[in-house]
């Protein structure tokens, strides 16, 4: 009998230790980034462009570039994603075509980010002649986050009680109006919070924008969607691996990492908090 409980204690110890290790890894990484990066952060760092071959100055163009690319990715991913999910949850009947679509979405979700980069390069940059640009980068990122947004939207749409749809349809309200007036408004908060996690991903990805949008250095801000931009993740990569003086720019690297992590995890954290609040508030 004691042996049984001893085994159990050892097992529980291992299991708790795993959870602890994961927490410590996250905590350690964030702690390390904050302690090394915070001294660099200043208003100038965020609002000024780099100077002296990127060994001094701020990272403003990279922040702006990341905002442009992320907004562009949302503009592509959100409408396509929500519309796909509406088809799958509200209209589609089980059958071959739906199966193909679902497999397609799963496969798309599994495509490595660097392959998305190649696709963006081969299709948007070269074939459609967009060049390395905000447009090409946004499209690539938008399709990268599409499966995430479809998944989040499907889940949110499914959580709207079937009885709401039945009540509306039984009044002689058409299907589209039922979706538009009843289903979507009730699913929208869930769709948005779920999608935010995808948006965080778009802001932090590097490989898809390396060949499609990101510039090593541009002094001026983009004037059209056909311009290249700097971006935070790529800026980190460039400074850490190919900068003119890698050791001397360490503080800037840490500062940039801190800004990027702050933005991405900030976005994620907001989504997680809103979601928790909504779950508690939900009344059906």
């Amino acid at each position: 009998m004691r042996w049984r409980y001893l085994k159990q204690s050892v097992f529980f110890g291992l299991v708790s230790a795993s959870a602890l290790i994961i927490t410590l890894v996250l905590g350690g990484i964030i702690f390390y980034i904050i302690t090394n990066g915070y001294s660099v952060i200043s208003l100038d760092f965020i609002t000024k462009p780099p100077t002296d071959s990127m060994t001094k100055g701020g990272i403003m163009p990279a922040i702006i570039g990341t905002i442009y690319l992320t907004v562009g990715a949302i503009a592509i991913g959100l409408p396509f994603g929500i519309a796909s999910a509406i088809y799958l949850t509200e209209y589609a009947r089980q059958g071959k075509i739906v199966r193909i679509i679902k497999i397609g979405i799963n496969c798309l979700a599994g495509v490595p980010s660097v392959v998305f980069g190649l696709f963006g390069l081969g299709f948007f940059v070269i074939f459609l002649k967009f060049g390395s640009s905000i447009l090409a980068g946004s499209l690539t990122l938008g399709f990268l986050i599409l499966p995430t947004i479809i998944g989040a939207s499907e889940e949110a749409l499914k959580s709207v009680p079937q009885t709401f749809r039945e009540a509306s349809l039984s009044l002689g309200v058409s299907k589209w109006q039922t979706i538009y007036r009843i289903v979507l408004p009730n699913a929208l908060p869930g769709i948005l919070t779920g999608s935010i996690l995808g948006i965080g991903r778009a802001a932090g990805e590097t490989a898809p924008i390396m060949f499609t949008a990101a510039a090593f250095f541009t002094a001026k801000l983009p004037s059209s969607i056909f311009d290249e931009v700097m971006a935070l993740p790529y800026h980190i990569y460039v400074l850490a691996t190919a900068g003119t003086n890698i050791e001397a720019t360490r503080p800037i690297q840490f500062g940039t990492v801190l800004v990027l992590v702050g933005v991405v995890l900030g976005i994620d954290l907001i989504a997680i908090i809103i979601r928790g609040y909504m779950r508690r508030k939900k009344r059906w």
Partner: peptide, 26 residues
């Protein structure tokens, strides 16, 4: 057909709207 044949369900299923808008919705 559904406009002429109304339905009341097993479980009350008002919309998460105001009382007024529940009635005026249809």
């Amino acid at each position: 057909i559904r406009r002429k044949v109304g339905m009341v369900f097993q479980k009350p299923n008002p919309f998460p709207k105001t009382i007024y808008n529940n009635i005026s919705y249809g």
